[in-house]
Simulated scan of single mutants.
Amino acid sequence: MRRLSVFCLVVDAGGVTRAAEQLLVAQPSVSGQLRSLERSLGATLFVRSGSGLVLTEAGERVYQWAKEVLASSVQVQRDVDDLVAGTAGSLVAAASMAIGTYLLPPVMTALRAERTGADITVQISEPEIALRATQRGTVDLAVTSWIEGEMPDALVGEKLWEEPIVVCASPNGPPHSDSVTLAELAGLPLVGVPTGVSYHRMLVEQLRAHGVPELPAVIRLGHAEAIKEAVAANGWVSLSVGYTMHADLASGRLRAVRIRDAHLVEGIGLYHREAKYFSPLQSAAIEALRELGRSRCAVTPGP
């Protein structure tokens, strides 16, 4: 298992040197683990190409197999630990930032209240990181923005619902109406998100589908709370997902402005490994998320 773990790290890190740095060991130690693995398998896993290493055909096959073995071993160890400890089960979920901040806490806290011995953890990160953790088996499931197109390797995805994206505005700031067009939105002071995050890519793709180029931003902020604060304090606007604004709308701190000529949405997706075995606690969490999706669909219909 140690050799397989080192081998996968070398592949993922892009070389022996980076893998050794992450493991805090000398480079010859990592090289020795690779040679030992090759001897035990009777196959060459890497060939040198320029200054780097490239997987052979056998190496590619072993890499795919090793990831499955390592992920399964993590799950088995966690299941055994739960049995030995006699707990009510454990659940580790990964979520993108807004979903992990606004949607998952009520679901998970309600689940914990029902099962007093449960061990529940929610890890919050970028969607790509959450999905990689799910692939490795270090988390049981991920709830992130829905990814259109090809499913990530070894994962099963389920779109739970689509959440509308609206213009978030201050009570007395622009626009001075309850709806706008995309053309009108382009002339407003917009608080954007960093260009490298998945939410930005999702927005750009949907705007392009409506024939609109990327909207200019007066500032880019990386968390929904910071964005809402900038909107409220400066009379600016943002393109925000409805569930991030619930408390602010109720208090009158912010208002939601509808986009008349476009239906922008964030799909909410549930992801898990193909071969994942779910404990009763984990199955209950999935059903609670599906129920949340059904309730959100009932209150946030399409245009």
Rank of each mutant, 00 (worst) to 15 (best):
A110S: 15
L249H: 07
V11G: 02
A226Y: 05
L141R: 01
P194V: 11
G52P: 00
A130P: 05
S240M: 04
S51C: 01
K67N: 08
T121K: 13
Q22T: 14
R208D: 12
C168S: 12
L207Q: 02
S96W: 13
L111T: 05
V69K: 00
L155A: 06
P28M: 04
I129A: 09
G293V: 04
V193Y: 02
V6L: 07
A217W: 04
V197Q: 06
A217V: 11
R220Y: 02
T138M: 06
Q27A: 14
V84T: 13
R48S: 13
W236I: 03
I120L: 10
A183C: 02
P175V: 06
E126T: 09
C8P: 05
A154F: 01
A118M: 02
T181F: 11
R2N: 12
Y271C: 01
S283D: 13
L37W: 08
V197M: 05
Y199Q: 13
V218W: 11
D82P: 02
Q33T: 02
R294I: 03
L34V: 15
F7C: 07
L70I: 11
V47F: 06
V25H: 03
V299P: 03
V212Y: 01
Y271N: 00
A71E: 10
L53E: 06
G32K: 08
S198C: 06
R255Y: 06
M245K: 03
A298M: 05
E68L: 06
L83V: 12
S49K: 14
L215K: 04
L190S: 07
A262Y: 01
S96T: 04
E114S: 14
T121C: 10
A298N: 07
L103C: 08
P105Y: 08
S295M: 10
V80K: 09
Y277M: 05
L9I: 07
V69L: 04
A118E: 05
R61P: 00
V25T: 12
